[in-house]
Simulated scan of single mutants.
Amino acid sequence: MTALGKHFGAHVALEALSMAIEPGEFVALLGPSGCGKSTTLRLLAGFETPDHGEIRLGDQVLSSPQAQVPPEQRRMGMVFQSYALWPHLSVAGNVDYPLRVQKVAGSERRRRVEDVLARVDMTAMAGRYPRELSGGQRQRVALARCLVSQPAVILLDEPLANLDRHLRASMEDYFRDFHRETVTTMVYVTHDQDEAMALADRVAVMQEGRLKQFATPETLYHQPADVEVARFIGQGSVVHLARAAAGEWLTGSDAQRLNEQGSARAFVRPQHVVLGVEGGLPARVERCIFRGERHVLSLRLEDGQSLTAYSHTAQPAGSHTSVAIERLWGLEEGHTKMQAHRDRVPAQ
C-alpha cells in the first residue's frame, strides 16, 4: 500500500497511508472506531476504490484511481465479523459454495472441502447447519470457506468481536496456531489491543485515517512513537519533567523536574512505578482496582500529575504513599531518550 487516500464526501477516511506487508506476515490493524482500519481492509479486498495511491500484491497493481482488479481476481479471502454463512446450507455446503461459483470440478471440490474442514477441525460437523454450531465453530467454518479458494492473503474483519471472552481466548490460540502452521499472510482488523499484541508479528496503530506507528508489539509497548500511541497501547501515565531521564530513578530530590513548565513529556509504565520508597515522591491513592493477580492503583502526585501503579496488596483510596519512577520513555524529539531502551528492551 502506497499513499492510500479515501474520502466519503467531506469525511477523510484514509490519508496518505503507506505500509509494506511481508509474505507470510501476520499484521494487525489496530485503532478506535472510525480510525480507517475497516476501510483499509475493504480497499485491500477490492470492495472500495482508492481516491489516491495504489495497492500491489507482488508486482501486480490491484488498486489505483485508474485501475481496479475485481475482488474475485485478487487471490484474497475475507473472514467477516458476522460469519456471513448461508443458513440453508450445511457446513460442507457453505465451504463448497465458492468453488461452485468458480466452476471447479466436482472431485476437486470434494477434495478441497475435505482438506480445509480437516485443517479447521470441523470434519465431524460437515453435515450440520450454522444454527447447530457455537460461535467459535461458525467462525472456523467462515475461515474454512475463505481457505478453500487458496488465497494468497487472508483478511479478517474483527472476527472475534461477537464471541464471549472465553471463546475469544480459545480462538486467539487457534488463529495463532493456524498462522504458525500455514505461514499464510494475514491482515487482521481489531479495536482490541490485547488481541493485536497477542497475535500479530507487527501492529499498525491507526488514528483518524492516519498511520501512527507500524512496529512489533514489543516496540509499540516499550518505544511508542508519541503520546497517542503510548496511551493506546497498555497502561501507563504521561508525566512532564525537565528532561527525559536516562535510566535513573526519580526520587524526592528530583521532584522539581515534575513541576517545571514547558518541559518534556515522558511515558511511565505501571511496572516501573515503585511504591513505598523512602524519600520518594509523595502520592495519594485515588483508586484501587483488584485485577486478580494484582491491584491497579491510580495515584495523584503533589503537583497534580497522575500515575498508574501495580501493587500486590490493596491500598485504600485516600491513603498516602511515596513512589520512585524506575524507568521512563521520552516521547518528544529533541529530548534525551533512554539509551537502555534504544539499545535493548529488558524483558518485563
Rank of each mutant, 00 (worst) to 15 (best):
206 M>E: 02
197 M>H: 08
243 R>E: 15
292 G>K: 03
246 A>N: 15
209 G>F: 07
225 A>Q: 00
200 A>P: 00
209 G>A: 11
259 N>H: 15
210 R>D: 10
231 R>P: 04
206 M>H: 05
275 L>C: 04
264 A>H: 04
217 P>Y: 13
272 H>T: 00
283 A>G: 06
236 G>F: 01
283 A>M: 03
223 Q>Y: 01
258 L>H: 11
275 L>R: 03
288 C>I: 03
202 R>S: 12
266 A>C: 07
276 G>N: 09
262 G>R: 04
259 N>L: 15
209 G>H: 07
212 K>N: 07
220 L>A: 03
244 A>S: 03
263 S>Y: 11
209 G>R: 11
251 T>P: 01
289 I>A: 11
291 R>P: 01
266 A>Y: 01
239 V>W: 12
295 H>E: 07
199 L>N: 06
281 L>E: 04
228 E>P: 10
293 E>F: 10
194 D>S: 14
214 F>V: 06
249 W>P: 10
194 D>H: 14
233 I>Y: 08
198 A>C: 06
233 I>H: 08
230 A>D: 11
297 L>F: 01
286 E>Q: 04
233 I>V: 03
258 L>R: 09
276 G>D: 12
262 G>T: 04
240 H>A: 13
211 L>G: 00
234 G>A: 10
232 F>H: 03
200 A>V: 03
226 D>F: 12
263 S>D: 10
258 L>C: 15
251 T>H: 00
250 L>S: 09
286 E>I: 01
210 R>W: 10
238 V>R: 01
259 N>M: 13
262 G>M: 02
242 A>I: 11
258 L>I: 10
238 V>H: 09
224 P>I: 03
206 M>S: 04
258 L>G: 15
197 M>G: 08
240 H>W: 11
293 E>G: 09
270 P>F: 06
233 I>L: 07
201 D>F: 06
289 I>H: 07
205 V>A: 10
256 Q>G: 13
212 K>Y: 10
239 V>L: 11
284 R>F: 11
224 P>L: 05
243 R>F: 15
194 D>Y: 14
279 G>A: 00
231 R>T: 02
238 V>Q: 06
291 R>L: 05
268 V>E: 02
237 S>E: 08
211 L>K: 00
248 E>S: 10
201 D>I: 02
282 P>N: 05
213 Q>Y: 09
279 G>M: 05
213 Q>L: 07
205 V>P: 08
256 Q>T: 15
211 L>D: 00
235 Q>L: 11
284 R>I: 15
297 L>R: 01
